[in-house]
C-alpha cells in the first residue's frame, strides 16, 4: 500500500490554479524527486502534502500507517532563523511531539538523530553560528525526530557549496537505504535523476510521473535537462 496517494488533485490560491489533475503515489522506500520550474506548483504541492493547504478538489490519502503529522519536513530556511538564539539540541528536540514536555524516549530519539548526523559534538552550539551545511543537518535531524517513515525535503541544497551539497545528498541516500522514504523537491534536475528512483515533473499539471530511467529517455526529460534550469531556489 502507498504511503501517500494523490488522486486528481487540484490546488488553487484565490481562484488561481497552481496544481491540477495530479495523481501519483509514493510507495514505501521510494526516492521521489519532484522537479519543475519556478511557479510550477511544487511549493503548493508541499503545503498540501503537509496539510497546510486544503485541496480544491481531489484527494490526498495517507496509508501504511503514515499520519499526516508524521511527515519529516525539511523546509527552506526563513530569515527569522538567521539570528535565532537556540542551541542545536533545542532545535532538534523541537521535532518531537512534546505533550507538553519531552518524554525520555523523545530525548533519546533526538540524541540518536544527532549522533546519526554527526551533531553530537555541536549539540550545545548556537544554531545561528553554524555553517549552512551544518544548519541543514540540524534541520534534517529535527525532521527525523518527527518521522520514522517519510522525509519531505524542500530544496535541501539551496545556497550550499558543491562539496557540502554532495555530503547532504549522501546522507539522504543513506537514510533512504535504511528504509526512510524520501520525497524531495528540487530545481536541480541532474542531481535528481542521478539519485532518485521516481520522478514527478510538474508544470501545474504533471508532465511526467514514473521511473527515473524512463524519465531520462523521455522527450520531456531530455529537453528539461538540456535547458539547464536555473539554480538557486527563491520560489515563493
Amino acid at each position: 500500500m502507498a504511503l501517500i496517494s494523490c488522486r486528481d488533485l487540484c490546488l488553487a490560491y484565490e481562484g488561481k490554479i497552481a496544481v491540477d489533475r495530479l495523481s501519483f503515489d509514493v510507495s514505501p522506500g521510494d526516492y521521489l524527486c519532484i522537479v519543475g520550474e519556478n511557479g510550477s506548483g511544487k511549493s503548493t504541492l508541499i503545503r498540501a502534502l503537509l496539510g497546510l493547504k486544503k485541496p480544491r478538489s481531489g484527494s490526498i490519502q495517507y496509508g501504511d500507517g503514515l499520519k499526516q503529522s508524521e511527515i519529516g519536513y525539511l523546509p527552506q530556511q526563513t530569515p527569522a532563523q538567521k539570528d535565532f538564539p537556540a542551541s542545536v539540541r533545542e532545535v532538534v528536540l523541537s521535532g518531537c511531539r512534546a505533550a507538553p514536555f519531552y518524554s525520555a524516549s523523545e530525548k533519546r530519539r533526538a540524541a540518536e538523530n544527532m549522533e546519526k548526523l554527526g551533531l553530537t559534538e555541536l549539540k550545545k552550539a548556537c544554531y545561528r553560528e553554524l555553517s549552512g551545511g551544518q544548519q541543514q543537518r540540524v534541520l534534517l535531524a529535527r525532521a527525523l525526530c518527527a518521522t520514522r517513515k517519510l522525509l519531505l525535503l524542500d530544496e535541501p541544497v539551496t545556497g550550499l557549496d558543491p562539496a557540502v551539497s554532495a555530503e547532504l545528498y549522501r546522507i539522504i541516500r543513506d537514510l533512504n537505504e535504511e528504509g526512510v522514504t524520501v520525497v524531495m523537491v528540487t530545481h536541480d534536475v541532474d542531481c535528481a535523476i542521478e539519485r532518485a528512483r521516481t520522478i514527478l515533473h510538474l508544470r501545474t499539471v504533471p508532465l511526467f510521473w514514473g521511473r527515473a530511467e524512463d524519465y531520462r529517455e523521455s522527450e520531456i526529460g531530455r529537453s528539461f535537462m538540456a535547458s539547464g534550469p536555473e539554480k538557486g531556489g527563491d520560489e515563493a
Binding site: 503537509l50 496539510g51 497546510l52 499526516q68 503529522s69 508524521e70 511527515i71 519536513y73 523546509p75 526563513t78 532563523q81 535565532f84 537556540a86 533545542e90 532545535v91 528536540l93 523541537s94 521535532g95 511531539r97 512534546a98 507538553p100 514536555f101 519531552y102 529535527r142 518527527a146
Partner: peptide, 22 residues
C-alpha cells in the same frame, strides 16, 4: 512553562510546527 516547548517550536519555525501537528 507548560507550553514552553510548543512556544519554542512555533517561534522557531511555524510552518514545521503546524505540519507536525502542533
Amino acid at each position: 512553562i507548560i507550553f514552553y516547548h510548543h512556544i519554542f517550536a512555533v517561534t522557531f519555525d511555524e510552518t514545521f510546527a503546524r505540519a507536525t501537528g502542533k
